[in-house]
Nucleic acid binder design. Structure first.
Lengths: 397, 397
DNA sequence: ACACTAAATTTCACATTGAAATTAATCGTG
DNA sequence: CACGATTAATTTCAATGTGAAATTTAGTGT
């Protein structure tokens, strides 16, 4: 099994931010996204996802002629969406190539992640580099109040191009069909937010947005297929197939968290016994331990060799392995990306994870590329902003 | 839950066959597939999948202007790939529309399905209508001998346009990576068949081909997402996502057949207990019964109320429900299509199937559209031929 | 300085497209 | 039964976008 451990947390950091950029002089006016031709959009996306590259490579990748690339990039450079300069690859012969990159600082996108009681925000540039994050308590869970709070957050930033909002809910076309945490049913969040902020708005499930973000800007950049598994308060999963996010026909996200591990296992919230969730979610894991500490404390105990804690974490590790194997069996992805606040679990129980995979995965172990991505809670807000980028770039189609 | 029971077996039958059509006068020469423009290909595909429709509808569906459609269809009609006439929809006002359909009889495709000991063939026209089927024992399982036998089958038909070969194996880009039935490892079946027959050839896994066939010509025609589950000697599954077949990064097919139903269940060939397969495959089902009759006899016993048989079929039904629910959870498809020789199982245990779905599926029951498609073993050969159609139409890209 | 190489650009002929105008086919109506 | 109404299909034609070929550009090596 191939393993890679990423050393960085996406592209977080405050690089390249040079203050607000607005086309109009009005204080809180939106920064308009320019109309782009289809090829221009394709080219921008290619550079965004795969990083700086010369025109000749763009032409080869997108199967366009060089003149076409020259023409299209001319416009993009004029609009400030592409810039020359960057890692100059020394070629021994011929005219040196002029790599094009997406400069920071032109457009800014606001991401909002809603939880049951907090509102996290992130402002990112077009490369999904985080410029700023905030966190505040949710004043009220009433939809209109939440939207007003989002609008106030947006008002603090001049010249935003778009807003993305994510939450752990069943969302279909910008409509929150059902949210257990906030108690919402059929809330037209996208329309409400768009009206309140005056900005073009995208709304989606948080795990879906995270998956898409990893596919565009993260460890799965540009892959044709990938599975993302998040471990934390809940177990989430997202799929990339044929270069696109799998969006359910009814807006349901890919669900594997009640796949059975052992019918004699612990009782799950769903009523059955021994689901992946019953071993792996934070609160189920803690419930299985006598002294009810925090997840961090439980982790510490397992690391220290406490037998109870070790047993519970090992069981969770095995369940994780079963989950990974099940997902990999489902779509045979190029990569399985594991992330979320509960990721350290893998570290203390990696042997049992491997065992779970071995017992479940039906391909050769060498075909499974498992990638562990460290995770910061702010990633949720960042991926909300990245959702706005995605929607903006899609809208040009 | 929405249910629909199809009354027909795809479009089998011998309609429209008007004898061999070849461009060249040579006896066994291949019928060349014409070069098509991109729009022509799109239009042909649209009519092929969605049935006869007037030019105006083609224009609306594909977002093309009417002049463009007129131009492209003119060529297609000239080439005989489209023809006017068909179900004339009486419009109350205006000039009546002229529906275009794909006529039978222009091109013929050979499908070959290989099993451990037999070779099934089907000849179909461009609409995947079966014109003829044959079946013969496999003389030898040695790759060169099998290819020679395929070539002889192809030689019996003049003017074929392409050949499709399917088998229950791990196939990647026309290479049979591993076939347990024939004992093959890394056999370049596509290249070998193409050389031996002189025809353009496609090779794929049988269930993948069946899935694609249902998506193009069957009960899932033109759907954006669909899951296909086949019950028979083995349990197979195929996925359509975003309008395309899910093809694994390493050529592995979607696998859900070892999803756990009950860890205390019967021992499975995979070594564990209570997998879907351990209840649902034909030989596991028979193994659980004392008197070892055929599947048909077991089915008869269950229908007659034999308690043992009923229990075994009910368990299998429940496992099927779990399988359906698991697959539906994975991709939230527009439709789940159930087919295969073992389909009658659903009929005698539908209550338990429903129970399994209810226990597993996490969406509202109303979101699940389950479709039962009667199945004839010749469907395998037909879908091999449809694979050839698909490859032919793809090749023009 | 000069040949050599490969990237980027310009030139230019050509193919594709759709808006607008036109023609075609049918129904209802006076 | 001619005529307007209506919609399908086609033709005309100007605009757009494309890539092959030629040209320019910016480096390296001798």
């Amino acid at each position: 099994m191939v393993r890679s451990f990423a050393g960085t947390l996406g592209r977080c950091g405050a690089a390249g931010y040079r203050g607000p950029v607005t086309t109009t002089s009005g204080s809180n006016r939106a920064r308009e996204w320019p109309a782009l031709s289809e090829v221009a959009r394709q080219i921008l996306l290619e550079v965004l996802i795969h990083g700086a590259m010369p025109r000749s490579e763009i032409a080869a990748r997108l199967r366009l002629s060089r003149p076409t690339v020259t023409r299209a990039t001319k416009v993009l450079v004029l609009q400030g969406l592409l810039a020359e300069g960057g890692a100059q690859l020394r070629t021994p012969l011929g005219r040196p190539s002029e790599p094009l990159r997406v400069p920071g600082g032109t457009h800014r996108f606001l991401g909002v992640k809603l939880t049951a009681d907090r509102l996290h925000t992130a402002v990112v540039d077009l490369t999904a580099t985080t410029l700023e994050t905030t966190e505040e308590p949710l004043r009220s869970t009433e939809p209109r109040a939440v939207v007003a709070q989002i609008a106030r957050a947006a008002a603090r930033h001049a010249g935003l191009t778009a807003v993305g909002v994510t939450l752990g809910a069943h969302i279909h076309n910008g409509l929150v069909v059902h949210d257990a945490y906030l108690g919402w049913v059929d809330v037209p969040l996208k329309a409400m937010t768009a009206e309140a902020t005056g900005l073009s708005t995208a709304v989606d499930n948080d795990v879906q947005a995270l998956t898409a973000t990893e596919h565009w800007f993260g460890a799965g950049a540009g892959l044709n297929s990938m599975a993302v598994i998040t471990i934390g308060a809940g177990i989430g999963s997202g799929l990339i197939v044929d270069g696109g996010l799998v969006e359910g026909a009814h807006g349901l996200t890919p669900r594997f968290h009640h796949v059975l591990v052992d019918s004699n296992g612990p009782r799950c919230d769903c009523g059955r016994r021994g689901c992946v969730s019953s071993y792996l979610t934070e609160h189920m894991l803690l419930r299985r331990l006598d002294g009810p500490p925090t997840f961090a404390q439980a982790l510490e105990a397992a690391r220290a060799g406490d037998p109870d804690a070790r047993r519970v974490f090992n069981d969770a590790g095995y369940a994780l392995g079963v989950l990974i194997g099940t997902v990999a069996n489902a779509i045979d992805p190029q990569k399985v990306l594991l992330t979320g606040e509960g990721l350290p679990l893998h570290e203390v129980a990696s042997r049992r994870v491997d065992q779970g995979i071995e017992d479940t995965y039906e391909g050769d172990a060498g075909l499974l590329d498992l990638d562990l991505q460290p995770f910061d809670f702010r990633e949720w807000a960042r991926s909300s902003a990245a959702l706005a980028i995605k929607a903006t770039l899609r809208a040009t189609i």
